[in-house]
Design a protein around this nucleic acid. Structure first.
Lengths: 133, 133
DNA sequence: TTTCATGCAAACCATTTGCAAAGTC
DNA sequence: GACTTTGCAAATGGTTTGCATGAAA
């Protein structure tokens, strides 16, 4: 069930891509390519690690996934909603909550404009320890 | 105890440490360990890459440096001011401007509290293309 | 002379890439 | 069949570490 795969980003229909999307759908927080790969293995799905990396990256480029770097520097992904948002991530369990911050968006734009910067993008992540820990 | 290191971050007086700090002082934007190492080489300073990594890391831990990850994932450092702030980084030349954002701080705290998160920290970086490009 | 700092090279680790085999259209 | 996707293994590239040596206290 390709729960999350609009028209294929590009290229042809891929079985693996769907499997990877599904695997990621099984999580509700950010996971690294390695995590996804291991989860699939455990589920008896045979996939190459390189394929997971390639696919996750492609899906991210296609806007299907939300990507961010964990505090340790690895790239982690998660299915994302369509709207722009940021994350509140638990540094113990990885649980991530999507948060909206119109104030932050405006602030970023304003600050950038003030210094003559164009093509502005911003990275905002809030880390903390969630209530379960 | 002495959470905030007095004179030398730890260990004894080091010549290299001073040299590395100087090299970093020559920049006013974020640089990677490799950048610093290369700059020193070019200046006929003989230093091991590992030492640069170790020192930069130690200085960062000691609070003398401000560290952040570039968009490509490398860790970059810069001498930092004492006050909490964020950065507006040019993705073309690396130029970084320190920006203050009380609104953002408050927003982060509020959002975290709202979801029951403790020990909150946040990562906010604004990227763009500066006026020189 | 005991301890910490440094260099060098090897080790690590996440990620990428080359290329031949397998899958799609 | 023509072309794309996958797997595997080898190659990268940033960063860390083990160990012997040199410099401070």
């Amino acid at each position: 069930m390709d729960a999350v795969t609009p028209p294929t980003p590009r290229g042809r229909t891929s079985t693996k891509r769907a499997a990877i999307a599904d695997a990621l759908a099984g999580f509700d927080d950010f996971r690294s390519a390695q995590d996804v790969h291991e989860a699939m293995r455990r589920n008896d799905q045979r996939v190459g690690l390189a394929t997971v990396y390639r696919t996750l990256q492609a899906m991210s480029d296609a806007g299907e996934l939300d990507a961010m770097r964990s505090e340790s520097g690895e790239v982690t992904y998660r299915l994302c909603s369509e709207t722009h948002h940021h994350h509140l991530v638990c540094r113990v369990c990885g649980k991530a909550v999507e948060v909206r911050g119109p104030a932050v968006e405006r602030w970023a734009e304003a600050v950038a404009a003030e210094h003559g910067f164009r093509e502005v993008s911003h990275l905002v992540e809030v880390f903390g320890v969630c209530g379960d820990h």
